[in-house]
Structures are given as structure tokens and as C-alpha cells.
């Protein structure tokens, strides 16, 4: 097998804080193939954004400290100089964030926002950059692109701002797009537009996508493969179908059981929501056993003492649980 586009090995991003070291990301490994869409899910604070920021080396160091390796097209990004890294950011790897208002520059019009990256990375002239900006706005479905391109972020609606973010991210034909909660701040009908746009663009542009979200519905709709994170660790990974059909890790099972499914009142499958008791553990204290043991219904002394290794429980399906069944549990 050829080398994947992105290969993350034992990524560890810790933060120094006055009351201890925050193990935000604590040794996770995964890969992303060319053109593939991989989702990272998990609850607030489990380290999704820190993983994304680490991949682009946008973590302030100190207080942060990144270890491990992040091989992108064979090159370890953690070994590059800041200058080399800048040539990759926004060019070969680009990123879209949850809140476009804070990531767009309020004093630049749309033409400049998009043009800036193009001029920086591709050396286009101002004129060419503006033409390309209009082309990109058309691509992301903004009506009247020639007028909109002269507007400023505050003149745009939330959905349009997110489209502009996507236009900027795609302007240089990246090979990898990291999208951190790209639709979380949007209304559901606008979210549907943006997800539709992302799917459509993926077919046309062919970029691989790392999609970060806490919304299992969004995962089911766009991802091909899913990584479940809990307290800074990867606890499960599988193809999207397998993950939803036969979740192996008790945390994933709990997560899936805790969201109501639209339409359950029609099928008579309405049940009480599953609760995962308790709270996510603090990342500032070292956890010896399984990170989920304090909330897991199946936990035994073994779980509390020894951290389970990630094991392949079925082809392409790994989970870090001492008891996760090797055979599919008939659901």
C-alpha cells in the first residue's frame, strides 16, 4: 500500500497550566488517505480542536508542547521550519473554523481575503487574484459574486461568511482540508446548504477532509471513516457504517444511545435516552487505567488499573477496551 496523504503517529499535545499539565491530546495516531473524509467526534474538551491545531502547528508553544510525528506527503510537519510551514498552511493544507466572523479579517473585503492567500502562495497579480476570487465565490454558490466580492464580513450573513471561509480554504486547491465544526454555528437549513456544498466540492476538487464535529448526524452524512476521541485519546475507529451499526467501545455505544433519532416517534422506537453517568475526567490528572473507566458500566478492576491498548476487533475496526467484543454484537 502506498503511503497515506497524512499519517499522524503518537501525537501528544500537552499544555502547561498553573495547576498541572493538561494532557489535551495524549498519544493519538491516525491516517487520512488522499480524497478521503475522516471525522473526529467526541465531546467538548476531548481534544478535537487541539488535534487540528497541532496538525497545522498553530499551538502556542509555550504553554503548549507537541510531540510525535505528523507526516504529510511523507514530510514530518513537526520538523519543518516556521517558514516552510507557512508555505503549507492555507495552501496544501487549509482549515475552516466554526466561527467565521473571528477568522475573517473585518477590515478586508472579500476579494482581498481570498486574494491574499492566492497572491502569497501562487504569486497572482491583484487583478488575477480578484478574478479568481469571483470564480471562487461562484464555486461556493454565493449569488452576485461580482458585487459580494467588494463587501466586508459584517455585511454577510453567517451562512455566506462560512461560504467565504470555504472559498478561501479551497482557493489554492489544498490536498487536505481541516474543518473544525464548520456548521455548528449555523441554522439547520443553512447547515444543510453548507454540507451539500462540501460534498459537492469534494467530488469536484478532490481534497481529503478531516471533519471535526460533535454532531453524530453530521458524521453519518459526510464521513467515510470515524475516529472517536475521549479525554485526549482515540478510543475507537471504524468505517462510518460499522461504527454506527456495531459500536465496540462502551463510550461510543453510550454516545449513540444518548442522541434521539429524528423520526423515532413514527416508528415507535422512542425510548428513554441512554445516559452516560458522571463527568469527563480532568485531563490534568494522570489516568492510569482506561480513560472511560470512571463512567463505564462494564468497568472492572482491570480497567481501573491498566489502560487498554487499541486493538483490531474486526477488520478496519479498532477499539481501546478490555472487553469490546471481537465478534459483532448483534444489535
Amino acid at each position: 500500500m502506498s503511503e497515506p496523504l497524512l499519517q499522524v503517529e503518537q501525537l501528544q499535545t500537552h499544555f502547561w497550566t498553573p495547576d498541572g499539565i493538561n494532557r489535551a491530546v495524549d498519544g493519538i495516531s491516525f491516517h487520512v488517505g488522499a480524497g478521503e473524509t475522516v471525522a473526529i467526534v467526541g465531546e467538548s474538551g476531548c481534544g478535537k480542536s487541539v488535534t487540528a491545531m497541532s496538525m497545522l502547528r498553530l499551538i502556542p508553544e509555550p504553554p503548549g508542547k507537541i510531540a510525535g510525528s505528523i507526516k504529510f506527503q511523507g514530510k514530518d510537519l513537526l520538523k519543518l521550519s516556521e517558514k516552510e510551514m507557512r508555505a503549507i498552511r492555507g495552501n496544501e493544507i487549509s482549515m475552516i473554523f466554526q466561527e467565521p466572523m473571528t477568522s475573517l479579517n473585518p477590515v478586508l473585503n472579500v476579494a482581498r481575503q481570498i486574494g491574499e492567500t492566492l497572491r502569497l502562495h501562487q504569486g497572482l497579480s491583484a487583478r488575477q487574484a480578484e478574478d479568481k476570487a469571483i470564480e471562487m465565490l461562484t464555486l461556493v454558490g454565493i449569488p452576485e459574486p461580482a458585487r459580494r466580492v467588494r463587501e466586508y464580513p459584517h455585511q454577510l450573513s453567517g451562512g455566506m461568511r462560512q461560504r467565504v471561509m470555504i472559498a478561501i480554504a479551497l482557493a489554492c486547491n489544498p490536498k487536505l482540508l481541516i474543518a473544525d465544526e464548520p456548521t455548528t454555528a449555523l441554522d439547520v437549513t443553512i447547515q444543510a446548504q453548507i454540507l451539500d456544498l462540501m460534498r459537492d466540492l469534494k467530488h469536484r476538487v478532490g481534497a481529503a477532509i478531516v471533519l471535526i464535529t460533535h454532531d453524530l448526524g453530521v458524521v453519518a452524512e459526510v464521513a467515510e471513516r470515524v475516529i472517536v476521541m475521549y479525554a485526549g485519546k482515540k478510543v475507537e475507529e471504524a468505517q462510518v457504517g460499522a461504527l454506527f451499526r456495531t459500536p465496540r467501545h462502551p463510550y461510543t455505544q453510550g454516545l449513540l444511545g444518548s442522541v434521539p433519532k429524528l423520526g423515532s416517534s413514527l416508528t415507535g422506537t422512542e425510548t428513554r435516552l441512554a445516559e452516560i453517568p458522571g463527568l469527563v475526567p480532568s485531563l490534568k490528572r494522570k489516568i492510569d487505567g482506561c480513560v472511560f473507566a470512571s463512567r463505564c458500566a462494564y468497568a472492572t478492576d482491570l480497567c481501573r488499573k491498566l489502560a487498554p491498548a487499541l486493538e483490531e476487533k474486526a477488520p478496519g475496526h479498532v477499539a481501546a477496551c478490555h472487553y469490546a467484543m471481537k465478534e459483532a454484537i448483534a444489535a
Binding site: G159, V188, Q191, A192, G217, F244
Partner: peptide, 24 residues
């Protein structure tokens, strides 16, 4: 349109999609 826009946690679910144009 609202119902059709909600992402459901069922991969590969075949459903009718109505994507509204424009903003509110």
C-alpha cells in the same frame, strides 16, 4: 424543509432532501 435538513445519525439513510435557497 426543516425536517429534511436535520442530519440523522444513520449512515447511508436514503431520504428526500430539500435544500432551501438563500437565507432567512
Amino acid at each position: 424543509a426543516l425536517l429534511s435538513a436535520v442530519p440523522v445519525p444513520m449512515p447511508g439513510a436514503a431520504r428526500e432532501r430539500i435544500i432551501l435557497k438563500g437565507d432567512v
